[in-house]
Amino acid sequence: MLQLTSRKRETYNVHLTYSLLWESALGIAAITNKKLINTLERPEKYWGEIKKSISDGLLEQLEFVEQNNTWKSLLQILHQREFKDLSEFIIYINGLQETELRFICLPFIGKDYQNYREKAAQGEKSSVEKLVQATANNSFFPTYIEFISQCDIVLLKEHLIQVMSNWYKEVLERDVAETSIILKNDYEAKKKMSNKLTPEELVQWATGGVTYAPEPSVHHVLLIPQYIYRPWNIEADMEETKVFYYPVANESITPNDKYTPNNFLVLKHKALGDEARLRIVKLLSEENRTLQEITDQLDIGKSTIHHHLKILRAAKLVEIVGSKYCLKKGAMELLFKELEVYLEK
């Protein structure tokens, strides 16, 4: 196709921030997510010891979170402004009017639904139903939307303040100095790297391989480091903004050891340290291919090829688009930059 314009493809701006308040809210989300908790980096024993050591009051609040997914409310509120500390966060919640708090807590699901979101916050049942229908495929949004739209707002305020305050004081403060340093280290590392990478490369590097292409209505990406939810990335949508709560890198945890490589860098090099997988990468650099096409080309058993592709996918070097395997966009170019940064430490 002949391109008659010289205008560059638009992309988004990347912003970075960090806070112990984000870490608190995500810790509350983690311990109340029974389906995911066994997949987190910290062992089941760690979470069990927390539950044994905290007060009955906090346990009761966490049960309420688990029933109603109010961890989402905490994150939504934290996106309203940069809070200096917990006391400022509490003052802000107490100062919100009923409709304001409901609107903030209700999820953003697109510009076309903002009017319904506003009316749902005012108690209009038909708008609540519209939001519920629009989020039917989400695992918890429908019931969460119904809860936020009809709950006692005084009790909701008390709950959000108590669960956040108690978690911060009973759990986070045990390692507050260490956690603060880790988050700051990662924030500064990503800030430094932002001068060397494009916005899309920075998102891919920070998240360990998430490819996020620009969307028409998204002008900003917000990167927030978190330690408690490693190794998972958590994504969220705000108006005009895509949010990634991404896992801090290994070198942010051990900053005094300049020889500690980024865990994603290690995964990628391990994935490439095999002749068959390098052959697959070469094939995919030429064009996207199906599993059968790769098998036929290399004359290796399909189950063996599938195993190699799983390793390449785990290292975020290969992905599936449609029915074909392909190299992740910019993955190889970014790998060279990551190695350069590591060697320059």
Rank of each mutant, 00 (worst) to 15 (best):
residue 201 E to K: 07
residue 212 Y to C: 01
residue 235 E to I: 11
residue 221 V to I: 12
residue 193 M to D: 02
residue 156 L to A: 08
residue 244 F to E: 08
residue 242 K to R: 15
residue 208 G to V: 07
residue 217 S to A: 10
residue 238 M to G: 12
residue 251 E to W: 06
residue 165 S to K: 15
residue 219 H to N: 15
residue 248 V to S: 00
residue 244 F to P: 08
residue 226 Q to T: 15
residue 224 I to A: 12
residue 184 K to A: 06
residue 194 S to P: 02
residue 192 K to W: 03
residue 159 H to L: 02
residue 195 N to I: 04
residue 239 E to A: 07
residue 216 P to F: 05
residue 251 E to V: 01
residue 212 Y to W: 04
residue 229 Y to A: 11
residue 218 V to L: 09
residue 252 S to W: 00
residue 159 H to K: 01
residue 180 S to Y: 09
residue 206 A to H: 03
residue 228 I to N: 00
residue 181 I to N: 14
residue 214 P to V: 12
residue 196 K to Q: 07
residue 191 K to L: 13
residue 157 K to A: 06
residue 194 S to A: 11
residue 250 N to Y: 04
residue 248 V to Q: 01
residue 198 T to I: 10
residue 238 M to Y: 10
residue 232 W to Y: 14
residue 233 N to W: 02
residue 180 S to T: 10
residue 224 I to Y: 09
residue 204 Q to R: 08
residue 221 V to M: 10
residue 190 K to G: 01
residue 156 L to C: 06
residue 158 E to N: 13
residue 197 L to S: 04
residue 251 E to T: 00
residue 156 L to F: 03
residue 175 D to C: 00
residue 206 A to N: 04
residue 218 V to M: 10
residue 227 Y to E: 02
residue 230 R to M: 04
residue 243 V to T: 09
residue 224 I to V: 15
residue 223 L to G: 08
residue 225 P to W: 05
residue 173 E to A: 12
residue 224 I to P: 12
residue 167 W to N: 04
residue 170 E to G: 05
residue 184 K to G: 01
residue 242 K to C: 09
residue 195 N to A: 12
residue 239 E to N: 14
residue 242 K to N: 10
residue 236 A to N: 06
residue 232 W to A: 09
residue 181 I to M: 13
residue 179 T to L: 15
residue 188 E to H: 05
residue 249 A to G: 01
residue 187 Y to P: 03
residue 225 P to V: 10
